[in-house]
């Protein structure tokens, strides 16, 4: 085991958890010491076993029994279960990166507020749509302090949404709306999630609408280009489809997220963006712990 790597566990063996595992195996700063679910027969578990990772089907118990083995846990279960896991992890002194929309800890969008998240012992990765839309909303909010309204719509391929995502539609909306509001400063926000059943699957796409009384389109375009470059450092498949455009009395911006094709094919940009964001955050904890400077 590499002594300069942060010891992490993944809780939840669904799409998010399994994709996260594959990405962590490539990380210079993270070492996945346990992959935890509830059913050894699940396809995520089989994948982990095939990758030579230690697995357990005993959920949070597996963490609580050997807390010394873990410095950080990614919780990729569901909003409901994270509510239960959060106090346990806190008591054990393990940092929690919450992949569900449970909103127990502070919201983290790495391109916007990574540094300030590192003092917290529980950070919330908002939602996949939130990771895609909030940076754009933040950039617009940096240009205009008086944004009246921001609306964000994410469309994802049906095949890329696992059972917990599907059961958490309401939490997705509430959490995304909150993140967009907090980071953009807009007076009112709205979030919509559309699952598209098309075959072949469509790429994840996110649209940000902004209502601003006198939009400075030049400044907005500069700010958005800047944040997109920051995003691309940790989410390589993030790209602008439509640059900020004034249309029908609103500013419309569209981004597409193509995944790396790790656990699910590349259409599942929703898995990639939230997982890349979570890894960028966890690596920052690792770098701070080991005093690594990397720019």
């Amino acid at each position: 085991m590499d002594s300069k790597k942060l010891k992490v566990a993944i809780l939840g063996s669904g799409f998010i958890g399994t994709d996260l595992l594959i990405k962590i195996l490539r990380s210079k700063y993270l070492d996945c010491t346990l992959f935890v679910g509830r059913n050894l027969q699940s396809s995520g578990m089989s994948k982990a076993v095939s990758l030579g990772v230690a697995v357990s089907d005993r959920s949070i118990e597996a963490i609580a029994e050997n807390p010394k083995n873990f410095e950080l846990v990614f919780d990729a279960t569901s909003a409901h279960f994270h509510q239960i896991h959060a106090p346990i992890l806190k008591k054990l002194g393990i940092i929690a990166i919450d992949m569900t929309p449970a909103q127990v800890g502070g919201m983290c969008i790495p391109a916007v507020n990574l540094k300030e998240c590192l003092d917290k012992d529980n950070v919330n990765m908002v939602t996949c749509g939130g990771q895609a839309s909030t940076p754009i909303a933040y950039a617009i909010g940096q240009v205009h302090k008086d944004v009246d309204y921001i609306e964000v719509i994410s469309t994802i391929a049906s095949r890329s949404a696992g059972p917990a995502t599907r059961a958490n539609m309401d939490e997705y909306i509430e959490t995304t709306e909150k993140a967009v509001k907090v980071f953009s400063g807009a007076k009112k926000t709205k979030a919509v999630l559309v699952l598209n059943p098309a075959q072949p699957c469509i790429n994840m796409q996110t649209t940000v609408f902004a209502k601003i009384s006198k939009p400075d389109m030049v400044a907005i375009n500069i700010a958005v280009d800047d944040i997109v470059k920051k995003m691309q450092k940790y989410v390589p498949g993030y790209s602008l489809v439509i640059s900020p455009t004034y249309e029908n009395n609103r500013v419309i911006t569209m981004v597409r997220v193509q995944g790396a094709g790790d656990y699910l094919p590349s259409y599942a940009g929703n898995l990639d963006i939230i997982n890349c964001a979570a890894i960028a955050t966890a690596e920052e904890y690792a770098k701070r712990k080991y005093g690594i400077q990397e720019y």
């Binding site: 469309t155 559309v194 059943p197 098309a198 609408f209």
Partner: peptide, 9 residues
């Protein structure tokens, strides 16, 4: 593109 309701963007 096989769009569905809600994809008016």
């Amino acid at each position: 593109r096989k769009v569905v309701a809600g994809q008016e963007d």
